[in-house]
Amino acid sequence: MNVIEVENLSKHFGKFKAVDDISFNVSRGEIFGFLGANGAGKTTAMRMLCGLSLPTLGEARVAGFDLYKDAEQIKRNIGYMSQRFSLYDDLSIRENIRFYGGIYGLTNKQIKAKTESMLHHLNLEEEANKMVKSLPLGWKQKLAFSVSLLHDPQIVFLDEPTGGVDPITRREFWTMIYEASDKGTTVFVTTHYMDEAEYCSRVSIMVDGKIDALGTPLELKEKFDSPNMGDVFLKLARKAKRGDN
């Protein structure tokens, strides 16, 4: 069953086609890797799917809801973790969880239960009342990911969640992604790390606003006759005409 269906989706900024006619499907429980060089249009595409930005052309259904008609329903069924760190620095961990529970309309009882289990799971029980800004980046990112799953969304969108995080924490982060996927949550993730691309169930590679390759990491490696995903990516990304901006 497909939880994301995208058909001929485009986003133009004036003459610049940030996203140029992309189509793909993502099925339930998949970890869908969304790769591309800087400026290839990944973030724009993801923002359209989250309802943060309106497409210029094309159709898309997210969690079974139409992107144009049911944007509010989509919002209830997705989680989002942005490229930039997205918790409130000047609130404590506990307050952040409460805040996000609140804006997703969870009851106080639900929030309380979720907070305890999340703190326990992340081993942050002792830090619960500390300001988020005092946490190391890796912990913040893990916390932000957990918070984006707070309302049990069908799909979670992660925009470069592991940028600037050390390899060990990245490993732990991916363990969390697998756990979420095992529970049936679809994970839509953009990344620059090619080793992470290997962990995905399927990968799409965007070049100049278009999807140039789509398949399981194994398929792509065979198709492009490469030993690893990094090589696949380089072969495709070199064709890009757009600069690195």
Partner: peptide
């Protein structure tokens, strides 16, 4: 500026 607005906007609030 902080990026927290994005999170609020993707939420159903």
């Amino acid at each position: 500026e902080m990026g927290t607005m994005e999170i609020i906007l993707v939420s159903p609030i």
